[in-house]
């Protein structure tokens, strides 16, 4: 599916990309701050290693520079939709567990959730510039049921926020790749050249 490549679409894409890059940068710094607060409030060890958690999209990717623009957008969108559900679940669990006792953590979680939702919408806008548009959300798998212990939930939350912080960096890089002028770009084909 060749991307629509009229000058106005190219301009629109570049504009969406640059705004998305700024949003990703802001999201990242907020997530890093939230991580510090979360580790402290939940009594966790900042250097704790968290094995890959089921249902949490890993930012790690191989041969990143060979991805097409469409692949980048689709992977990003799938990730942020998953983070939106995971953060909503964390927020609910946090309220159940602490109620108003830790409103600050709740507010910080809610603020990041808002940014994640905004970023997902932003990605959908970029995909709409392509002929096939964003995939529908029906059938998207909800986060796994919470049969975890309290400590496991806390570790899971740590894993979610760490991956989200990495995704925010990756997203900014992806959007810069996509924003690259398609001609003469030495790196992987940008959106305009996507198959």
């Amino acid at each position: 599916m060749a991307a629509s490549d009229s000058p106005s679409a190219a301009l629109r894409r570049r504009d969406l990309c640059s705004r998305g890059i700024r949003l990703a940068g802001k999201m990242r710094s907020d997530v890093v701050d939230l991580l510090d607060t979360y580790v402290e409030r939940q009594g966790l060890d900042a250097s704790a290693s968290v094995v890959a958690v089921e249902g949490v999209p890993a930012a790690a990717v191989e041969r990143w520079d060979e991805q097409t623009g469409t692949q980048r957008l689709l992977e990003n969108l799938a990730a942020y939709r998953a983070f939106r559900a995971l953060l909503a679940q964390m927020l609910e669990e946090q309220r159940e567990q602490l109620g108003e006792a830790d409103a600050a953590l709740g507010r910080a979680l809610a603020a990041v959730l808002l940014q994640v939702s905004a970023f997902a919408y932003h990605l959908e806008e970029l995909l709409r510039l392509e002929s096939h548009g964003p995939p529908s959300e029906e059938g998207a798998s909800p986060p796994p049921p919470s049969h975890l212990s309290l400590f496991e939930k806390k570790l899971r939350g740590l894993g979610v926020l760490r991956e989200l912080a990495q995704w925010a960096v990756r997203s900014a890089r992806d959007l810069r790749q996509i924003a690259k002028p398609s001609l003469g770009s030495s790196s992987a084909p940008s959106l305009a050249e996507s198959p």
């Binding site: 968290v50 890993a58 790690a60 191989e62 990143w64 760490r162 990495q166 890089r173």
Partner: peptide
Amino acid sequence: YLQLFSTVK
């Protein structure tokens, strides 16, 4: 780097 954006140390 074989992988980028990894949280694994």
